[in-house]
């Protein structure tokens, strides 16, 4: 391709604008988190630079209560979701891609069809189901859906990825004596690393940032997650915005860390998902 210098300049400007649009809220959040008490949401981005109130951070953590426990709870739920989602979605994707069983295509269509149901439509029957199972106020409702096959979209992604790897690889594994389970574990899963990272990051972010499900199912304060604690900063009167932002920044940090560490693999997975179908 032959891009003139003019086009390149415009592209840079466009990318700078996009980057600004994504970065500005983050910068604003950090800026407000260092404001003096009672400044609210006003002030310029640079106001806090002159007089940063670092003490907002310990104060925010103190306000959250047992923040160590909150982190541990959230981490537990997130890790279970990520591990469950990766294993079950890839296993289901393998079955749909590689095993020839009666009614497979109809079943796969059904799985895809569930993607069209909005979460709000299923949340009441789902609540009744979990209440019937006696799992309200446990981590079951937060983690079981992921562990039991989770997202149909991720099943779809894994299926496409395994189909694109080609049938011969699976045949070779079968000839070498593998059961389907062994072929999935030893051959297909290691080859799906970009997809594992992508699905892993999506699941991590969704589980870490989920407010809706913990809000519905968790009651005991000692089981609370970070998002619930953040939500409790919102009071009818006297919301300490600077403390809330400081807490948000702390809660956000692991997400950014995970993303930046795995960024390259993440993008590869997205490319694969976009180009193979």
């Amino acid at each position: 391709m032959n891009h003139g210098p003019g086009l390149r300049l415009w592209r840079r400007i466009a990318m700078a604008l996009v980057a600004y649009a994504f970065l500005a809220p983050l910068v604003y959040l950090l800026s407000v988190s260092l404001h003096a008490e009672g400044r609210g949401l006003g002030g310029s981005l640079l106001e806090a630079a002159g007089d940063p109130r670092w003490e907002n951070y310990p104060a925010a953590l103190a306000r959250m209560g047992d923040w160590g426990r909150l982190f541990a709870n959230t981490l537990l739920v997130t890790v279970l979701c990520v591990a469950g989602q990766l294993l079950t979605c890839s296993l289901a994707g393998y079955a749909f891609a590689r095993i020839d069983f009666r009614g497979r295509d109809a079943l796969f269509a059904l799985v895809l069809a569930t993607m069209m149901l909005p979460e709000q439509a299923t949340s009441i029957p789902r609540f009744l189901l979990f209440r019937g199972l006696g799992l309200v106020d446990t981590y079951g409702p937060l983690t079981l859906p992921a562990v039991l096959g989770g997202s149909p979209f991720f099943v779809f992604l894994f299926r496409q990825y395994f189909l694109a790897l080609g049938a011969e690889l699976g045949d070779a594994a079968r000839i070498d004596g593998c059961s389907h389970l062994r072929a999935w574990w030893s051959i297909f899963l290691p080859l799906a690393r970009p997809m594992l990272v992508t699905v892993g990051i999506f699941t991590f972010l969704a589980a870490w940032n989920d407010l809706w499900t913990p809000l519905i199912y968790l009651m005991s304060p000692e089981k609370s997650t970070l998002t619930l604690a953040l939500a409790s900063f919102n009071r009818s009167y006297n919301t300490a915005v600077e403390l809330m932002m400081a807490a948000s920044a702390v809660v956000l940090a692991p997400c950014l860390l995970v993303y930046f560490l795995l960024q390259r693999l993440f993008l590869r997975g997205i490319e694969v998902a976009a180009s193979k179908h």
Binding site: E168, A172, I187
Partner: peptide
């Protein structure tokens, strides 16, 4: 196999 089917 024709396409070798080695594990990449």
């Amino acid at each position: 196999f024709q396409n070798y089917a080695l594990y990449p």
